[in-house]
Each structure stands twice: as structure tokens, then as C-alpha cells.
Design a binder for these strands. Structure first.
Lengths: 307, 307
DNA sequence: GCGATTTATGCGGCTGGCGCAACAGGCATG
DNA sequence: CATGCCTGTTGCGCCAGCCGCATAAATCGC
């Protein structure tokens, strides 16, 4: 007999969040997946826990009785697992993550929040750094894992891809290209452009990629930090080409992003860790959360683009 | 976070049974599988629960503390799941199984014992019958599921193979063929043979198979029931050809089984159920247990043959 | 030492679960 | 009453993880 704890979590999450979709997001899966988990549990139990139409749902008689029990069960298991983890390595319960700044400012907060919620007793060390510094930090073991831009140049590093981050055209809402569905690189020849300078990690990668397109872009402005670029755009000094991940939704209400195609140029964001040592439990937990947060973000941004 | 209840079961089972292999058997998996489950759990927890050499093991400090907790957890989950199942259908908590007698006398007890242990509140109806009666019982819904010999002749029946049961030569320990590793059909021409009569399910099937071999076997004795055949063999009246499954280990200490080859003739045992209705929860539980018991028996008999 | 016994591991196959996308049923708004 | 939107369901294809098998490795008894 295999007990479907995932199903239990689904059941409890639906009730606690009040909706399938919200519960799914909280569990880092799609709504479809959650629907199936719950169904499986119900099949296994031979019982309907939640009576649902396509639009509303309510607990069944049995479900109502089972809910507190399920909650209790889950929290028991949770506690048991965590206590075992904690008792064993109070000393190792510190984990470091190095992260390129573009991600650091955007997704890292979410990661941290989930991590501290799930491992309340562990301490988290954060390194916000440029791409090559991230690799250094991981290799020298100052950080357990890192989030950086591929290609990761060094041996001794294991990398797992997290996200393809396309470069997009960033412009203010009064820019002539703002309402296009997509812009081709060739259309940018006579634009006033703000680019990242060669010094930065993404800048270097970007330059190489553009060189292959046989296009010379006007380098009207060149900045070291993406946020400066956003500042310039906001002042109406031109359009910038930046990785999509940089854009904080709502930070600059007047700023728009337009996909750049022909071809799409992306940078690859990846999770890296040393090859030679196995990760500590704390680090593995963190890595899992990183992957989940990125997966969820990928999904949600894909959805956002569609609407 | 997905909780590894299978790992918990593995851990507890090892301690309770005192050995990996025994625990594995009890959980209906191989020793290798169990070893991996435990390892996975330990990795997930970041803790060694059982310190082991290849030959001995003992609980680690942490494992010792965790054991009662794990047991408690499992029994809680168990109870919760079962109570929900039970509350929902006190009326349906009765399940019938029809079974050919060769299996009934041998494996059915094991199945029943596991079932009542796992579903203590459910009642079990047993039909011990000949092959065609089993099919009848299932079709007429007198039984929820059946165990019979293929080919199952009828439509409206869904069959899942359980076991290839080879015919073997059964002889007493003073028989001249007793110590051969295997016996070819041709060698039996001048033996005194005890066969099942055409009337029985396996007998019919057996006759057809033998006819295809272009061999005429001496029908010295012909009996209706396998146990009678065993009795005759035990009296030294000849050798019998019977499905392997018939042999109760240790029932007749002087009786040996020798594989019959050139070619191997098998009968196929299968689990059947009606095609048109979905099984009740109770019936599905029983079906699962049937499959597990057969799988375990297949493995153990294969091992036994190897040694 | 050497065989027997018990756990660990590399490998291949398969199943279950997931995401995706299309669908279906309700509810709101006009 | 029609139309569109919102939410849960379902078919499909894919992939990771798990299992069994075979074999290795390690230890104990003799």
C-alpha cells in the first residue's frame, strides 16, 4: 500500500486556498495536475471528498470529516521529517547561494521567502554578484549553489538549466515601436539604443550573439547595470535591449517590453553547483525550491504573454 | 514537498522483520528495491537511520529515535485511510472471489490472510470451483473477480495474466528420474504415468498442448483431481504430470518435481473481472493483493529453482 | 582462506505523473 | 437568450523515477 500524500496535500490545499488554481500554484504544479492528484486520492479512497461543478465546489460529507484528519496527518509528517533533519545537523543548517544580480533582485526574494518558510531553522547566506563571481563563489565553496548565465566557463561545475531568458526591446509607452507585437533586429538600425556594456556577463554574451547576426547596432548609450538602462528608457532617451527577466512588472509603469525576433536571442539561466561534492540536505532543499520557483515563473510569464 | 511513505514503510519493515530480504518480501518488492527505498528516505532526511555492513545492521542514534515516530505515522495514515473507506460504504464492504481449486488450496489462503489484515472490516466470499465455473461466477456477478486458467473462453471478461505455470513431472524420491535436472517429453514413453482426465480445466488444456507435440503418452492412470494424483505418486504407482502450482511444498516429503522440457508446456493463470462494470474499491484492493501475492510467489519459486 | 549469505549497484524497461492544450459546463452581462 | 469569460476536466505525449534482474562487494562462519 502506497499512501498518496501528494493527494492529501492537494485536498487540503484546495480547501485552504479556496480554489483549484491557487492551490496548484502554491504546490508548484499546474491546475490540471492538481485536479488529477485529488481525483486519484478520491479513487484510492473510493470516496468523493469535494463535490464540484466546473464553477463551484464544496466539501462532501465525508470530505468535511476527513479534512481535519488530513491536516493533522500532514502536519505530523511534516514535523517528523523536519525534526529529524534538524536534530542531525544543527551545524550544517546554513546554506549559501550566489546569484547574478538580475535574478537576485527579481526572483531571489521569492526563493528566500519559500525557503525560510520551509526550513525555518536554517540560515541562508546570499551573494549577489556578477556572472563570473557566481562561478567563483561556487567553486571556492563560499556558496553551495549558484544561479548564473550559461555558458558556464569552467570545469568542476555541474549545471542544470532553469530558464531561457529572451532579450526584448524595452521602450517607453510613447515610443513608436511600443505597440508592435514583435520587432525584428533589422528594424533597429536607426534607433537610439541603450545596451549593456561588454564588461557585464549578459553584455558579453549578448555581443557575441548579435555579432553572429551580421548586424551592427547603434550603440547610442552603453551602461553597466540594467537598472540604469531602465532609468534611461524611462527618461525617454531611447529603447534598450535587455533580458526579459530584468523587467520588474509595475516598477516603471510607462515601460513596455516588445519581443525581439528574427531570430530570438536568449540567454540561458542555470543552476550550478560543484561537481565533486554532494550537496548538503539544506542545499538540496534550496535547489529544489529554486527550480520550483523558476518553473512557476516560466509558466506564469508564458500565460501572461498569451493574454 | 513529497513525503516518502514508501521509505517509511521500508524502514519500519526492516526493523520489524529483522532483515532486508524479509522486509522486502513482506512489502512485495525485491530486496534491491527495498534497499533503494530506504536509501532514498535517508537521503531525503539527510540522516543515516540504519547503519549497515553487508552482513549486519543496527539502528543509528537518530534511527532509534525516529522509529516509534515512523510507526506512529504509518499507523495513523493507515487508520485514516481505512476509516474513510469504511465509513463510505459499509454496505459494499463485501467482495467475492472465484478461484480454480489448484490455486484455491495453495495461494488463496495467503491472499485471504493479507486481505483481512488490510481490510479487517470487509467480508470476503470465496468460491472454489472449476475453470468454467469461475468464469460463470464472474460473469453473473456472483464473484467480483476470479482467478482461472486461460484461455478464458468468453467475451465480457477482462483478463490480466498472473502467472505462467509450467507442467512438471512429479515423482517419488525412489523414482529413477527423480534426480534429473530436467526431463524431455520423449523420455516418458515407457513410464507409468498419472494424468488429469479430460474433464478438468487444466486437463483439457494439457491434452491439447500435448497433442501438438505429436507424442502419445501412456495413460496408465487418469484422475479427476490433482490431489488424488499426488496420493498415487506417493504410493509409488508412477509419476504424474501436473501444473507446478499444485505442489504443496512439504505436504508429501518424498515427492519431487522435475521440470519438463522440449518444449516447456505451461498453463496461463490469470485474474479476470467483468468488462462492463468498474470494480468496487473493495474488489480493487483484493485484486491488488492477488497480483502482489502471485508476483511474490513467482519470484520466490524462481529463486528456489535456482538453488 | 573460502564458501555462503546479505546488502549494494549498474542497467534496462516500464509505469505513473506531469504539462500542455483543447474541451465542457456555469455564471454574468447586455 | 446569446455571448464571452472563468474554472475544472480530459486526451495525449513525454519524461523521471522506480522496479526487477543480474552481478558485485563485503562480511561472517567454518
Amino acid at each position: 500500500m502506497k499512501f498518496d500524500t501528494a493527494g492529501l496535500q492537494a485536498f487540503v490545499a484546495v480547501v485552504e486556498h479556496g480554489s483549484f488554481s491557487k492551490a496548484a500554484t502554491a504546490l508548484f504544479i499546474t491546475q490540471a495536475g492538481l485536479s488529477r492528484r485529488l481525483k486519484n486520492l478520491e479513487t484510492q479512497l473510493g470516496v468523493v471528498l469535494i463535490e464540484r461543478t466546473t464553477r463551484t465546489w464544496r466539501l462532501s460529507q465525508v470530505g468535511h470529516g476527513f479534512l481535519p484528519r488530513a491536516q493533522r496527518l500532514l502536519s505530523d509528517i511534516n514535523n517528523a521529517f523536519h525534526e529529524v533533519r534538524d536534530t542531525s545537523r544543527l551545524d550544517q543548517a546554513e546554506v549559501g547561494i550566489a546569484c547574478v544580480s538580475s535574478v537576485a533582485s527579481h526572483l531571489l526574494p521569492r526563493i528566500v521567502s519559500h525557503y525560510t518558510q520551509r526550513f525555518p531553522r536554517n540560515r541562508l547566506r546570499l551573494f549577489d554578484a556578477a556572472a563570473h563571481e557566481v562561478t567563483d563563489a561556487v567553486l571556492s565553496k563560499r556558496a553551495d549553489i549558484g544561479i548564473t548565465v550559461l555558458p558556464a566557463p569552467l570545469r568542476g561545475i555541474e549545471a542544470a538549466p532553469l530558464l531561457h531568458d529572451p532579450f526584448v526591446l524595452v521602450c517607453r509607452d510613447d515610443h513608436k515601436l511600443k505597440s508592435k507585437k514583435e520587432v525584428r533586429w533589422r528594424e533597429l538600425r536607426n534607433e537610439s539604443l541603450i545596451l549593456l556594456s561588454h564588461g557585464t556577463g549578459s553584455g558579453l554574451y549578448f555581443d557575441r550573439a548579435v555579432a553572429e547576426l551580421n548586424i551592427v547596432l547603434p550603440r547610442t548609450y552603453e551602461v553597466l547595470h540594467p537598472t540604469s538602462a531602465l532609468g534611461l528608457v524611462n527618461e525617454g532617451l531611447g529603447a534598450a535591449i535587455l533580458p526579459n527577466l530584468i523587467l520588474f512588472r509595475d516598477a516603471y509603469p510607462r515601460i513596455r517590453a516588445v519581443p525581439l525576433v528574427g531570430p530570438v536571442v536568449r540567454r540561458q539561466i542555470a543552476l550550478i553547483h560543484p561537481q565533486d561534492v554532494t550537496l548538503t540536505v539544506a542545499a538540496r532543499g534550496l535547489a529544489t525550491i529554486v527550480k520550483e520557483v523558476f518553473a512557476a515563473w516560466t509558466r506564469s510569464s508564458r500565460q501572461a504573454r498569451r493574454h
